[in-house]
Design a protein around this nucleic acid. Sequence first.
DNA 1: AAGGCGATGTTTTTT
DNA 2: ACATCGCCTT
Length: 795
Amino acid sequence: MSDFNADLSLSARAMAARPAPYLDGLNDAQRLAVETLDGPVLMLAGAGTGKTRALTARIAHLLNTGRARPSEILAVTFTNKAAREMKMRVGGYLGEAVEGMAWLGTFHAISAKLLRRHAELVGLKSNFTILDSDDQLRLLKQIIAAENIDDKRWPARLLASIIDQWKNRAWRPDQVPSSEAGAFNNRGTEFYAAYQERLKTLNACDFGDLLLHCVSILQNHADVLETWQRRFRYILVDEYQDTNVAQYLWLRLLAGGHRNICCVGDDDQSIYGWRGAEVGNILRFERDFPGAHVVRLEQNYRSTRHILAAASHVIAGNEDRLGKTLWTEARAGEKLRLIGHWDGEEEARWIGEQIEDLSRGTRNLAPFSLDQMAILVRASHQMRAFEDRFLTIGLPYRVIGGPRFYERMEVRDAMAYFRLAVSPADDLAFERIVNTPKRGLGDKAQQIIQRRARASDVSLVQGAGLALEEGLIKGRGAGQLRALIEGIARWHAQISGPGPGRDDDLVERIAPMEPAGDALGHIELAEQILEDSGYTEMWLNDKTPEAPGRLDNLKELIKALENFDNLQGFLEHVALIMDNEQDGSEAKVSIMTLHGAKGLEFPAVFLPGWEDGLFPSQRSMDESGIKGLEEERRLAYVGITRAEQLCTISFAANRRVYGQWQSQMPSRFVDELPAEHVEVLTPPGLYGGGIPSAASTVEDRAQRANVYNSPGWRRLQASGGRPVSQPREAKNMVIDATAQPAFEVGARVFHRKFGYGLVASVDGDKLYIVFEKSGAKHVVAKFIVPADRADDVPF
DNA sequence: AAGGCGATGTTTTTT
DNA sequence: ACATCGCCTT
């Protein structure tokens, strides 16, 4: 630690003198990225090029050269996981001193810390609560309900997403541009303003506010800005391509003085545009920070040549990119493997077999352990087929990124009780649990409490107390309500003890006796809260199959308290660090979304569901056009580059989409794979195979997808045989494409997605149809039935 | 106040 | 297909 307190003027000599083991083994580009300390630096780090290594070495270098002390470095990430990893790796260089890196964390965690110091500048108190999305939604519902809005047509969810987007763009209510005036039935900005007002009175803020309030403070208070600009001598940002406008402003303000900012990212891995990330931030970096050094990390240490070549070829299809040329010294390895299947279940079955084969070490490859294999899907509903299959064959798997621990209902309920114990005025927490477990306090009783509280401008807990005193609430609800608020007062008294921070009025009025056996630890208190409130009992009495699991989660929650000194600290942690650890015990295949896989790598990767509409996602293309398609293509790039040695891409000809069978065309990305790096696998008896070529058209792809039209299929039909891979369920499908009626110009037809329409022109099996509702489209004939047969659409 | 039924909308996800 | 949600019944 004393090393870092060295006189900064000695830094030049220090640099020469001190050994710098962290530089060992860095390539030239990485070394440049590490040693270019002054001024703006953009580190364009392609997939698998050792960016985390460079980033941590850069921090080590800043410290080692005496440029900054640990507390003077601001290092920002997006996820807690990334922050943890960086901390661990920097810890490898620093040892204990890593604890001095007080400003290594997520945008939100660091913002919260800054905001607690300056809360009063935006009308908050420094002990503000951070709302989760449930609370946010509940609040918005109230605001909407107060205006007698039809919440069917204008749901709170919609408003929440609109407000989030505005916050991502750093628009405060008075800054929302007039082009957005139509939002939420012309009342979006009005509700946004009302929501912000409500938050202020609740002394609360949502996730977006953490950033936005910081930006406001830094913009409006030059002295504060200057303090922090001087404090953070060096700034590092990971995953810069994922920053939104608010984060960009936040960074630009803090870096505004010395401009010692190093942003690391990869425009080709920008896959979060839909939640406000602006690829433009990274594309514009040199303009935003004139004189910036741009360092490209292009040597890939992860994948074999075939894999890297395929990924590079695919991503080259994007227009809007800075451009990098990844290269590797690795061997060529295995080509990518491409295979088509009859349907999604067949695909899952085949992948399951492959995984078993690979884990036994067939092929010319060493065995892969289950931990080394992953299935990366575009949409989480695809996971189900794999889970079903793997359960039946007993293949251990783990789903990464399911519902998270702290988002489970019982955990949130328990947290609401803890929040009330810490701050009885937390109305949102009170609303959440007032009738959980059931206390006979329905809408009516809750309305009375609300009204009474508002009349005296007090918290709901106090309002409930008043309502009881005044006899406004009667019946069996009254007794239970009294027990609840007495409980809250008692827990609160035990947490705070006499003194500042305690709501003395509440304690005096409702639970005047001091706790009997004082010095109850926070863990015991938490247990007692869940006991006293009847919450544990509620789940004990619950006979549904998930009840035991929920009780386990509550136990786990209590256990998590061991890592904290008090409930307050725990609550702050949970508000910002909502992630869960994976059980690392048994080796398992990972199943996750492509988004969830970013930043990870696996020796063997399966990429199923490469079908147009699913991947690239139809919705993405409909909503964002070419930009959407490019983001999908980046997702394909992310997927392929996760693989170290073996990458297997697959598609199915038929898939159940929302319960309906649909024919699928192979993804256009399949066509974009470079044939020389791909081996096309052919399931026995089904496919003619054929290497996809860049020149192939939509019809070609339809033809390939059209398994039941393939020579192999016809042969099997003729011989009365059944292909090994034809699933039993397939019987109900229309499989004889030769029976396809020929359509004539002018015929009225039906398409299950586009509805009714008239055939405008016919070109082989390709029809041009003017749909009544969805406009004119080119459609392949097999998706069409005559209008009078609309009721028995064949999928 | 609490459980059952039909309309509804179904990518991706962090904090 | 399926889950979620709000309304409606008891």
